[in-house]
């Protein structure tokens, strides 16, 4: 008797679960048209993880969150209430100059040789070239 009761219970759950899944999927396909939007790949959104921590318990995860969560939002952007607008030509030029300044290569890319003077770097022609010039 107990076995019959439990098998009926399981079968009812499975039967209605399967029916809901099939009908839900069919309804979604039939009546929910174009329910999608651009995903990360559409906008070249490549995610880079700078830190990973696996299989933590709740307290460890809270500690990780406390330490890793740092606010990096806009601080120097226009005020939030200001209407979005295109930058003026002047603002664009100023922005481009700032970006250029910020992107100047530093460290190993910058030559440390301060002794070289323009005159000493002059191209010294080889003898055969000097002799050839004589004829023209």
């Amino acid at each position: 008797m107990v076995i019959i009761f439990f098998s009926c219970l399981l079968a009812l759950g499975f039967g209605f679960g399967l029916a809901f899944w099939i009908c839900g999927s069919m309804l979604d396909k039939s009546n929910n048209i174009g329910d999608s939007r651009g995903d990360g790949a559409t906008y070249n959104a490549e995610t880079t993880f700078t830190s990973r921590n696996n299989r933590m318990d709740r307290s460890a995860s809270k500690e990780y969150f406390k330490q890793s969560a740092v606010w990096k939002g806009d601080t120097k952007g226009p005020a939030g209430y200001e209407q979005v607008r295109r930058l003026t030509e002047e603002e664009r030029q100023k922005k481009a100059a700032e970006e250029k300044k910020a992107n100047v290569p530093k460290g190993a890319f910058v030559s440390q040789n301060t002794s070289a003077s323009p005159s000493s770097d002059k191209y010294d022609k080889p003898d055969w070239e000097k002799r050839a010039e004589h004829y023209y």
């Binding site: 651009g38 990360g40 906008y43 070249n44 959104a45 490549e46 995610t47 880079t48 993880f49 700078t50 830190s51 990973r52 921590n53 696996n54 299989r55 933590m56 318990d57 709740r58 460890a60 995860s61 990780y64 969150f65 890793s68 969560a69 990096k72």
Partner: peptide
């Protein structure tokens, strides 16, 4: 996840950034 043949809840931390381009 399964640990010692038991299913347990675990937490995974991920920190990082993503750059997006031409998002309308």
């Amino acid at each position: 996840v399964t640990e010692d043949k038991k299913t347990v809840k675990r937490y995974f931390g991920r920190t990082g950034h993503l750059k997006f381009k031409d998002l309308p």
